[in-house]
Amino acid sequence: MFSLFQYDFFINALYAAVLAAISCGIVGTYIVSKRIVFIGGGLSHASFGGIGLGYYFGFNPILGAAVFAVLSALGIEYTTKKASIREDSAIAILWAFGMAVGIIFVYITPGYAPNLMSYLFGSILTVSHLDLYLLIGLSILLILFFTTFFKPILYVAFDEDFARTQNIPVTKINYLLMSLIALTIVFNIRVVGIILVISLLTLPQIIANLFTKNFLTIILASIVIGLAGTLGGLAISYYLDIPSGATIIFFLVILFLIGRIVKWILSRR
């Protein structure tokens, strides 16, 4: 296994695993605590529209996905607050719209669509330098934002109406967080793929939440659990020669089951 460390692609995969754990650990805690997992699922699928456009017009699909996801995120926040569309209906529409646009544009793109599978199912071993730079930038932004505004974020997530009475800029914080959720999802698509990325933002938190009910502790524990999941999944996928994205998520589900059993044993004593 140590011979692997000679390879750039493997080193890149390790960097990606660490950065995925950090960004998903922070943003996922917000998503799980606020019960907006469905929004995450919607955004990751909506972003496929941008990937399709990227293929057709010949720009980087991840950048297209980022634009699609951020606009979808802002749209969901806007329609549910201003227009009288139910939030889950807005998500369902954008979810389907993005997938449809993506499929149509990938289909009409002449020739073969390289790497399409890596967007759908993830491929941590093929992350590019651009992917890593995006993840590094995002992780730094998230750490800065969450350390500076930790309390306001917590208060707004817990009780938006009350936060408004306290003159906290609730609307700005909500739009900003929705954008950060969208970017976190898109930049982690290369790690586990569109279909599974939401698991990377929820499974570590659900496991951590078994043992702690403190927002900050859940963030920190999720980063550690996420790292265990990505590295463990990567190792297993290498030895068994199976797809890395699916293995990472499968491994996290196993960790969840172990967590449940440990919790059950602890509660019986």
Binding site: F149, F150, K151, L154, Y155, F158, F162, T165, N167, I218
Partner: peptide, 26 residues
Amino acid sequence: FDTKFPISVFDVVLSGMAGKGKLPGK
């Protein structure tokens, strides 16, 4: 309220002061 939300009792009470500080949350 979502009573499953991971926030401590102390933080809930402190959130009532959020409007008073100069920097929100400090």
